[in-house]
Design a protein around this nucleic acid. Structure first.
Length: 274
DNA sequence: AGCAGGACCTGATGGC
DNA sequence: TGCCATCAGGTCCTGC
């Protein structure tokens, strides 16, 4: 599932190839993927626009055009944005195709069909509920241990659920929430309010460290994730707990346990995490 | 108000 | 072999 490190890897891949490219045509095969405007309008009006820049906010990718509009893409669980220098035989899971004037193509591919595409101007970002209400970027200066402590104090929920709430911090998903909690030595089902200042500091540091490391390894591929060039991420072998139930904790050797917290599959080490 | 759980989807997996 | 149930998870929506 693309979380912050995966979306950032896709972003950096697209940033290398897309700027300066002019859209020749758009082909929408699964119209429900386009939330704003209609699929038809996207196909009619996007051609002729040139890509300026590719940015990221949380798990949202933003492709800026020189006319001031932005294509916003959320990949949810199985979505991919694949860049190809030339057309290919696209399979049945390829739902939207952006053809550029130089013959290259950007393909939106999504087995589960949960991914969403918007095309609008930045002043209308508030129409995208999730983007509008996004918390601070975890790798920015806005995300401080102090801020995290404030959030943890005021919410009566588990610390893991807090980390998954995109309004609190943008971009963490199931993998990196579990990994950050393990590095910080905190059980995922602890009430957020029960964490001491030292634990919050450790958690804040762990979140940033695990995200930065995962970006260095170009993200985690469990099954579906691919970068813009179709390559898998390399962080899977560095995971300490996620989907490792029954295996030894790399820190202490204790067997990793799977539970459910806030309705999500959750992995932790009963010895390292208290 | 704030949280839990269902809906959205499809493919992989396991039981019978 | 084949059928069915279950699971996976990000976000929105509903209901408690």
């Amino acid at each position: 599932m693309p979380e912050l490190p995966e979306v950032e890897t896709i972003r950096s891949g697209l940033e290398c190839v897309l700027p300066g490219k002019k859209v020749a045509a758009v082909e929408v095969r699964y119209p429900q993927a386009v939330k704003t405007p209609t699929a038809q309008e996207l196909q009619e009006k996007l051609p002729g626009r040139t890509v300026n820049a590719v940015r990221r906010r949380g798990k949202y990718l933003q492709i800026f055009f020189n006319c001031g509009t932005v294509l916003v893409v959320h990949l949810r669980m199985t979505g991919r944005l694949l860049f190809s220098p030339a057309p290919q035989n696209w399979d049945k899971h390829t739902h939207v195709l952006f053809y550029f004037c130089d013959g290259s193509v950007l393909a939106f591919h999504d087995v589960r069909k949960f991914g969403t595409i918007y095309w609008l101007t930045p002043d209308r970002f508030s129409e995208i509920h999730g983007l509008h209400t996004l918390g601070p970027e975890p790798l920015s200066a806005d995300f401080t241990a102090c801020y995290l402590q404030e959030q943890a104090k005021r919410r009566k929920t588990s610390i893991k659920s807090l980390l998954l709430d995109q309004r609190v911090v943008a971009g963490l998903g199931n993998i990196y929430a579990d990994e950050a909690l393990h590095r910080a030595g905190i059980r995922p089902d602890r009430p957020a309010t029960s964490l001491g200042a030292g634990e919050i500091t450790a958690l804040h540091r762990s979140i940033r460290a695990v995200l930065q490391e995962a970006i260095c390894f170009r993200g985690t591929t469990m099954s579906d994730y691919r970068d813009a060039a179709g390559r898998e991420g390399g962080f899977r072998e560095h995971l300490r707990v996620y989907r490792r139930s029954g295996l030894p904790c790399p820190c202490c050797g204790q067997t990793i346990v799977r539970t459910v917290v806030g309705g999500r599959g959750t992995y932790f080490c009963p010895r390292c995490q208290r």
